[in-house]
Amino acid sequence: MPLLTLADAKAQLNLKTDRDDTELQVYIDAVTPVIEEYIGPVDPREVSEQHDTGTGRRLVVLRTMPVLSLTSVEPVLTGGSSYPVDALVLDAATGSVRRRDGGWFHGLLEVTVQAGRASVTPTINLAARMLVQHLWRTQRPSRSGGLAGGGDDYSVSEPIVGFGYAVPNRVLELLAPYRLPPGVA
């Protein structure tokens, strides 16, 4: 399930025709990396990371979260140890991988995972809808000549020039329960 469909965005914006579909799709595509910056991958995808375990480590802690499944753990250099996936345990909540037998990992490893979410929660979908709406409205003049939607989306508390911010606080607040832990990129 994608983060946001064209139908979702059109419903949020109350658009009834397909006149703006091509332009609107650009906005939909643009919000995905912004949302994922805060909460990690949404749409499932394969991700590979290199981890240097040196002379030995019991855990490999993934940098990409959330993780749906572990695909492979292979040596980068010739002659290194390969680790069969069925001999490993993935803790999806922490992003850690350990050997089932309690042994150590050795050397430079290429870890491949299926990252993302099994489904998009209504809260994450709403945050994406609201972000598209916010960005869409900055490009549409209101009938009175100013920007559409009133000042609260565009004004800031300090007297600085500009439209304010690209990601409204209300979107960040919706994403807060899904925020990546510190140190995870």
Rank of each mutant, 00 (worst) to 15 (best):
Gly107Thr: 08
Asp101Ala: 13
Val31His: 08
Leu126Ala: 09
Pro44His: 12
Glu110Gln: 13
Gly146Leu: 14
Arg57Trp: 09
Thr138Asp: 06
Ile124Asn: 03
Val67Thr: 11
Arg100Trp: 05
Ser142His: 10
Thr64Gln: 06
Ser82Met: 09
Gly54Ala: 07
Gln133Arg: 15
Leu147Trp: 14
Glu110Gly: 01
Gly80Pro: 06
Ile39Pro: 04
Leu126Met: 12
Val34Pro: 04
Ser142Pro: 02
Gly40His: 01
Ala30Cys: 08
Gly149Leu: 07
Arg143Trp: 11
Pro141Val: 12
Gly56Thr: 09
Val34Asn: 02
Leu131Tyr: 00
Ile35Asn: 02
Ser48Leu: 03
Gln114Thr: 15
Ala115Pro: 06
Leu126Ile: 03
Val76Pro: 03
Leu147Ala: 10
Ala148Ser: 14
Ser142Tyr: 04
Leu90Phe: 00
Thr53Trp: 03
Ala92Pro: 01
Thr94Met: 07
Ala128Thr: 08
Ala148Asn: 08
Trp104Phe: 15
Val61Ala: 09
Pro75Asp: 05
Val34Ala: 13
Arg100Glu: 13
Leu62Ser: 02
Gly116Pro: 00
Ala92Ile: 11
Glu74Cys: 05
Met130Asn: 10
Gly151Ala: 14
Arg99Glu: 01
Pro33Ser: 05
Gly95Asn: 11
Arg45Gly: 00
Ser144Arg: 11
Gly80Ser: 06
Thr32Glu: 15
Arg63Ser: 07
Gly150His: 09
Arg58Asp: 11
Gly151Val: 13
Gly146Met: 08
Val111Phe: 02
Asp101Lys: 02
Arg143Asp: 15
Ala118Asn: 09
Val132Met: 09
Ser119Arg: 10
Leu62Tyr: 09
Thr64Leu: 05
Arg100Cys: 00
Val73Gln: 06
His51Arg: 11
Val31Ile: 04
Thr71Asp: 13
Pro122Glu: 14
Val97Lys: 02
Ser144Tyr: 05
Gly80Asn: 05
Thr123Ser: 14
Leu62Trp: 05
Gly107Met: 10
